[in-house]
Design a protein around this nucleic acid. Structure first.
Length: 479
RNA sequence: GGGGCUGUGGGGUAGCCUGGUAGCCUUUGACGUUUGGGACGUCACGACCCCGGUUCAAAUCCGGGCAGCCCCA
């Protein structure tokens, strides 16, 4: 029943999440460790998830908001990088520099930890008048941040893939409105495509992007009680425009500095999907991000194989749009194949054997619940999409319930500490002060996640510093 | 940043203390018998993380590096 140990997942999600997570990532062939610490090889099965995210992103964000894709260089001259002082200070500890002879005749070059500076240098030439605005540009690229903390597949690697959007607007209102619009669309991608429920809200002063006025975030909550920041949208105000000399002639024929935002989400989301949905049999993927939505396994018996194979072929052809895998190889027993495709996270399995054919049906097995059902062959066109939709929905609802059940509101330090011990996602009315935030981190290990957009009545004083509470903040440990 | 643990074919491991033929399970390839939850047989391929030291001899002992994991800050 347990299967062959060395092939399947050996750790248990509920016992050792971290080991289990690594095993799922590696054994489902999404990814492998690269030679250099903190780097990873994203294999085709993993990259296909990223491609689904990209497709969805283009549809949900770029097309409707009129954002164009472009590409800027990976190397940033030190002088660009240092122009905005808060930005430079924030990123300096994790910038990798090209420090070789290559650059001996010129200035040092940074490998991009984010591309504001190099993009805005171009923007300063591209933007002349209000007629050039809004300017909306996105790039898909890799980023290097030299992490000193422990690295983790997808969740924290020194190199990762992301998109970074950089928009420029005439007015503050326009800029702020779209900064929020984008974080809401990130939520949509996370929840509707990936089935990862998130909180949406505003980051604290301390946690905001270096150089931004303020930052909006989507925050997911992992089974071990740690939050995962899944995407951010920063209102940059006019700070970068001023130092990069981005200005435009306004409708009033006067010179103005425009308002900017930048926003990104990364391959970290893949880690979020794996951790959120997968189980002790391996990867579980929401159907919308699965490259192959189903696998057909004919159950081949001596003497009856012709009919089974013929029907399977028919079913295979009729379900082409789900990009099915057909495994009619005779090298493995059905049980082996079942485990194999469970490990790899194929959302739906169709078994076709002599017993089914006698009844004119096939057997359908959901990857997420392993629940079996039968469907008449002629009903498959209707039945398959219905089950896939149900899987998609159930995965999200299950994750959502888990997150909601983890949230507790606390009013005292003791309750806060108790909540941390129980791996809860804590919300608390607090003072909003950075010094207090640092103290809370020191004492409890928790960092601020965000203040959501919902209007809340705030009462009392901050349990940690006794000053007047001004907002309801979420706290937890984080990745 | 501090501390600890680990590294043997693709995966899981034995051997290391006490130096001397690298053993087992699994995977992979071929053939045959099988096939409703990781089938069986036969044959074959495949490994001591790297660099240095000690030694007649190093997977094993010593030093350094690299990589992964865990705990604490």
């Amino acid at each position: 029943m347990e299967g062959k140990k060395s092939i399947g997942i050996q750790s248990k999600k509920e016992e050792d999440l971290s080991k289990w997570y690594e095993e799922v990532c590696l054994k489902s062939e999404l990814v492998e460790f690269a030679k250099v610490k903190g780097f990873m090889v994203i294999r085709p099965r993993g990259y296909s998830i990223w491609e689904k995210i990209k497709e969805n992103f283009e549809k949900i964000i770029n097309k409707p908001l009129g954002v164009k894709n472009a590409y800027f260089p990976i190397l940033i001259p030190e002088s660009f990088f240092k122009k905005e002082s808060e930005h430079a200070e924030g990123f300096t500890p994790e910038v990798a520099w090209i420090d070789k002879e290559l650059t001996k005749d010129s200035e040092r070059l940074a490998i991009r930890p984010t591309s504001e500076t190099i993009m805005y240098n171009s923007y300063s030439r591209w933007i002349r008048s209000y007629k050039d605005l809004p300017l909306k540009i996105n790039q898909w690229c890799n980023i290097v941040r030299w992490e000193t903390k422990a690295t983790r597949l997808f969740l924290r690697t020194r190199e990762f893939l992301w998109q970074e959007g950089h928009n420029v607007y005439e007015t503050d209102e326009e800029c702020e409105k779209e900064t929020i619009e984008i974080i809401k669309r990130y939520k949509k991608i996370s929840e509707d495509l990936l089935g990862i429920p998130v909180l949406v809200g505003k980051k604290s002063e301390k946690e905001k992007f270096a150089g931004a006025k303020h930052t909006y975030t989507i925050e997911a909550f992992m089974p071990d009680g740690k939050a995962l920041q899944c995407g951010t949208s920063h209102n940059l105000g006019q700070g970068f425009a001023k130092v990069f000399g981005i200005s435009f002639l306004g409708r009033d024929e006067k010179k103005h500095f425009p308002f900017q935002n930048s926003w990104g989400l990364s391959t970290r989301l893949i880690g979020g999907v794996v951790m959120t949905h997968s189980d002790n049999s391996g990867l579980v993927l929401p159907p919308k991000v699965a490259e192959n939505q189903l696998v057909i396994i004919p159950l081949i018996f001596k003497g009856k194989e012709k009919e089974v194979l013929k029907k399977s072929e028919e079913v295979f052809k009729s379900l082409k749009k789900f990009n099915p895998i057909m495994d009619n190889s005779e090298d493995y027993s059905p049980g082996y194949k079942f485990s194999e495709y469970e490990l790899k996270g194929i959302p739906l399995r169709i078994e076709i054997g002599p017993r089914d054919l006698e009844k004119g049906v096939v057997t359908l097995v959901r990857r997420d619940t392993k629940e079996k059902s039968e469907s008449k062959i002629k009903d498959l066109q209707k039945e398959v999409p219905k089950i896939l939709e149900r899987i998609q929905k159930d995965l999200f609802l299950k994750a959502k319930k888990r997150m909601e059940d983890s949230i507790i509101k606390v009013k005292t330090k003791e309750e806060f500490e108790e909540g941390m011990k129980n791996k809860k996602l804590i919300k608390m009315d607090w003072c909003g002060k950075t010094v207090c935030e640092e103290k809370i981190k020191d004492e409890t290990g928790a960092t601020t996640r965000c203040v959501t957009f919902e209007k809340k009545k705030i009462s009392g004083n901050c349990p940690f510093c006794s000053e007047k509470a001004i907002e309801e903040m979420y706290f937890s440990r984080s990745y």
